[in-house]
Structures are given as C-alpha cells and as structure tokens.
Design a protein around this nucleic acid. Structure first.
Lengths: 183, 183
DNA sequence: CAGGATGATGAGTGGTGACTCATGTTAGGG
DNA sequence: CCCTAACATGAGTCACCACTCATCATCCTG
C-alpha cells in the first residue's frame, strides 16, 4: 500500500511541478501543454510524467488541493453565520472561478473523469451541509434542492470565464442568481 | 463586391457541407475535425476548404443561420404574448442548447471571434426588444439589465451542456434562474 | 566515500488536425 | 460537341502534443 519515501530531490521537484501546473492551468486552461508545465517548473517533461503518469493524474492532484481549500473555506463561513454561509460561499466560488480556470474544470468535468468525480462528490457534501443550515435558518427557498444549487454554481462559473464577464457584471449576475434561491 | 454565380455542383456541395457541419458540430462540439465534416458531407477535405478558407469561417456561416432562426422565434413569441415572451424565449434557448452545442459556441465566443461577435450583437438586440416589452408589462424586475440577461442565458447554456444536466434538473434550474428575474 | 538504486534528462515516437497544391474531373457557354 | 475555366480530389506538409526510453546524474545507505 504505502510506497517507499521519495528522495529529497524528487520531493522538491514534485512540489515545483504541482505549483507550476496550478499556475499554467489557471492561466491557459486545462488544454495547456505538459511541456509548458515542465518549463515553468524548471524541469524536463520526463520528470513530470515520472511523477504523474498521465496529464489527467496531474489535473486530479491539483483538483484535490483545490477541493480541500474550498471545503475549509465553507466550514469557516458556516462557523461565522449559518444563515448566509451558503450565499457567501456561492459568491466566493464564482469570484474564485473568475481568476482560476481550474475551478471550472472541477465543476464541469463531472462524469468524464473518475478522479474528478470524487472531488466533486466531496464538494457536493460541503454544499449540502450549507444548504441544510440555510434551510433551518429559512434564508433559502424551501423547495430548492442540492442539485439545483450545484447546477447554478456550475453555470455561473462557466459563464464568468467563458464569456469574460466584467467584475461588475459578475456581481450583478450572481446577485440575480441568488435572488432566485432566497426564501 | 458580388462574386460570379457558383457552378451547379459547387452550390450543391456548399449546401451539403453546411448541413454536415451543423450536424457534426452539434454532436461533437466545435473541436470536431474538418475531416469528419467532409466525410459526413460525402466530399473531400479540399472541397470544404475551398468553400470555407478556415474552420472559423465555416463556424461563422453556421452561427449566422442559427442566429436568424432564433431571432425569428423571438419575434413569433413576442407577437403571441409580450409579457412572457422573454421568459419563454430564455427557456427555449436553453432547451435548444441541451441538444445542439452550436448555441453554446455562439453565446460563449464573445470577444474571441469577430464574425461571431456580429451574430451575438444581433441576438442581443432581439433580447433587448423582449426585455423592453417585459418591463412595460411589469413582469420583469425593474432593475434587471440586458447584460445580466445575456450573462444568465450564457451561464445556463454552458451549464446544461458542460455538466450534462438531466431534462428535469434543467427545467428546475431554469425556473430558479427566471425567479431571480421576475418582478 | 563507494556503489547500487532511485530519479532526471530530452530527443524521439506516434497520433491528430488544420490547411495546401499538383493533378484529374466536370459544367456549361459558344 | 468541345474546350476551358471552375471545381473536386486526397496525399502530403507543418505544427502540436501526450507519452517513452536509453542514457546520464544524484542521493543516500552501509
């Protein structure tokens, strides 16, 4: 099950590759080449493929990291104010998506990628928790279901990046969207 | 300005290519290969490139067609019921997008493609007309602006395809979305 | 600090897709 | 019916990209 520990240089390179990949994919989308990731990490292509056998494995690793950060943020928000956490979290993710294409890939790749599906399920649970609390606080429309929230979130993230919304338009649009969810 | 008329066989092939391209791009998205379009049209690749010098030119031709059909539909709806035409049109386009990826490309390619931008502007005018009528009928929230409507529409279309919403989820999600727009 | 194991390298492979062009084919005016 | 301009053909070019592997470098353990 557990692999022998990595050599010091290998551990360093793995970290560099992950950091470089996060940057590159955020800037150019997931279609950016592995070569570009290697260049940014100051490493040869072969090294990237030694650590991540396929490009998809590299993506999955980044997604996992992103998902952890998002879950942590959701819990912090819920601790502050249960009634509005769902709405704040929603708006935050969209803001996040505006600058990092990786979020969109995480949300959009449902069904196309086993690894990503697992991350999505985890994010779904996080949203479910926020939705339940919002329902108890009666701040959300009583008939709104989890899949609708995820659908709207995906849609907003897709839109903000694909159509290049301005910050102002993004905020107004998300406000309209959340209006549809409120009690 | 005006080119000499096409030969009979050239006219026939042009029509076949357009029909095949519409099918192929709807099924596999705009990343489908020109070779696939040629195969489906029963024509050699060279012929496709003779009629449409770049793949983008081919896409633009299809978009123009799509945009005309959508505009016609919008006017038909407005003639029936000015108060609800905006909402019905919105839902119709999303339903359309669920089966034909071309709609998404039309909406999403804003800013990336001059030809497509012209089609989008035309569609924007159509939506503006519907929005104005809905405002007069007071069926839409008074502060909703055109760019928000376009943004929400883009988002819904992106979402329905990218995330593979079921028909049921699609209808519920669009309903929530329209709730945010109503007076 | 020697030597084997682990890791890094980057030219190479195979595959795909947009676009070209020399060659062959046809429409349709005279 | 013939001839030529317009058109069709499809193998070939070029560029890109995911992924491999023989060779070389580095770590680290005894």
């Amino acid at each position: 099950m557990s692999e022998p520990p990595l050599r010091a240089d290998a551990r360093r390179n793995r970290a560099r590759i992950l950091a470089a990949a996060a940057e590159v994919f955020d800037e150019h989308g997931t279609s950016a080449s592995t070569e570009e990731v290697a260049r940014r990490a100051g490493v040869a292509v072969g090294t990237v493929f030694r650590h991540f056998p396929t490009k998809n494995d590299l993506l999955a690793a980044i997604m996992k990291d992103l998902q952890s950060r998002l879950t942590a943020e959701a819990e912090a928000l819920a601790a502050k104010d249960e009634a509005t956490a769902l709405f704040t979290f929603f708006a935050d993710i969209v803001e996040h998506a505006a600058s990092t294409r990786t979020v969109i890939h995480l949300l959009a790749a449902a069904g196309t990628n086993v690894d990503v599906d697992r991350q999505l399920a985890a994010l779904g649970e996080t949203l479910d928790a926020l939705l339940t609390r919002a329902r108890k606080a009666r701040t959300v429309h009583s008939e709104v279901r989890l899949d609708e929230v995820i659908a709207l979130l995906t849609a907003a993230c897709q839109g903000t990046l694909a159509a290049g919304w301005t910050p102002d338009l993004r905020r107004r649009t998300v406000a309209r969207l959340l209006d549809g969810l409120r009690a």
